[in-house]
């Protein structure tokens, strides 16, 4: 049996962590080895030579309280490629809003001897609550407006593969930062790795309070994009318009949409990223999304590799026991 790749990863306190609930507080020597491991999985994925026995006999439950085909599929694929038994549980929205239900669910899953619990929930902190009640390893697959750690890790891996480093870069995160767990995880990761982050968007979506996270705030897209190495666009939810945070889609695109003219203010060959799904013509112009600078498809590919690395890493102690 081939051992899992990159077992030479250096020790760190995160090495023995059982859960991945967020990136806040993680250190570079925890993040780098995880990305190294993911990188090796990316190569194995391309050559179709993934060792299928890493998680053999282990059970992974995708517990999604909020619909997300993309993330769920990515975790499912990651689990299956490593040989785990994967079960998808979509929990009806109607039964969500009660803390009791969540803990009851936890108790049920615990009784089933689950090894990995991948949780998506609309409430910030829900995966952390579950993690305290179950024996399984919990992976946060997005909780409310809090964190989406595997998304930030896959973004980081994509950047590292193209630019060669995660340090000393300037990254613009543009759009609905206030409501974005993707943005928060990316802010933690990028600042931890020594890059500087600019948040760009209207002040209703990029309130100045976010400046406390150690980032620069820009309400003008042109200023925010000037000279950056990476442009991360966020999805503008339709409900931001209906709740009055943005007057209209056309005004949003006019001032905060990524078009060729604005992208040209960034460094030549700056990367264009988007966590998907995109609203073409609202936050991003089609020709930019499909341009040679866009690494959006590669982000999806790296997503599977990063999730394989996370599932592998979190279960090491369990498998060694």
């Amino acid at each position: 049996m081939a051992d899992a790749p990159s077992t030479t990863a250096t020790a760190g306190s995160g090495r023995n962590a059982r859960h991945l609930l967020g990136l806040e507080g993680m250190t570079p020597d925890q993040i780098e080895p995880l990305l190294d491991l993911a990188e090796s999985y990316a190569l194995l994925n391309r050559s179709r030579k993934v060792p299928r026995d890493v998680l053999r006999g282990r059970t992974l439950i995708n517990l999604f309280f909020e619909d997300s085909t993309r993330t769920r599929t990515s975790f499912e694929l990651a689990g299956r490629r490593l040989g785990a038994d994967v079960i998808n549980m979509s929990v009806a929205q109607s039964s969500v809003n009660k803390g009791e239900t969540l803990l009851d669910t936890a108790a049920t899953l615990n009784a089933m001897q689950t090894d990995l619990l991948v949780v998506r929930h609309s409430q910030s902190g829900a995966p952390a609550l579950l993690a305290r009640k179950v024996d399984a390893c919990v992976v946060n697959a997005g909780d409310g407006m809090h964190e989406h750690p595997t998304q930030a890790l896959l973004d980081a891996l994509t950047i590292r593969r193209h630019i060669g480093t995660l340090g000393g870069l300037t990254v613009a995160i543009c759009g609905d930062v206030a409501h974005s767990r993707v943005a928060r995880s990316n802010i933690h990761l990028l600042t931890t790795m020594g890059s500087s982050v600019r948040l760009v968007g209207p002040s209703t979506l990029v309130p100045s309070a976010l400046g406390r996270l150690g980032v620069d705030i820009h309400h003008n897209m042109e200023d925010g994009l000037r000279g950056v190495d990476v442009v991360m666009m966020l999805r503008l939810q339709r409900e931001r318009m209906s709740s009055g945070l943005v007057p209209s889609a056309r005004e949003y695109f006019r001032f905060f949409g990524l078009d060729r003219r604005r992208l040209d203010l960034a460094r030549p060959n700056a990367l264009v990223m988007h966590p998907g799904p995109m609203n073409r013509g609202v936050e991003i112009e089609s020709s930019v999304a499909d341009s040679s600078q866009s690494v959006i498809q590669e982000q999806v590919e790296m997503g599977v590799a990063v999730r394989m690395a996370v599932l592998d890493r979190l279960t090491r102690n369990r498998r060694a026991a």
Binding site: P202, G244, V246, P247, S248, R250, E251, R254, F255
Partner: peptide, 14 residues
């Protein structure tokens, strides 16, 4: 606000 009706923000930027 749109139509000065006090409900939704008008297209202030434009």
């Amino acid at each position: 606000t749109k139509g000065c009706e006090g409900r939704e923000l008008a297209e202030i930027g434009m």
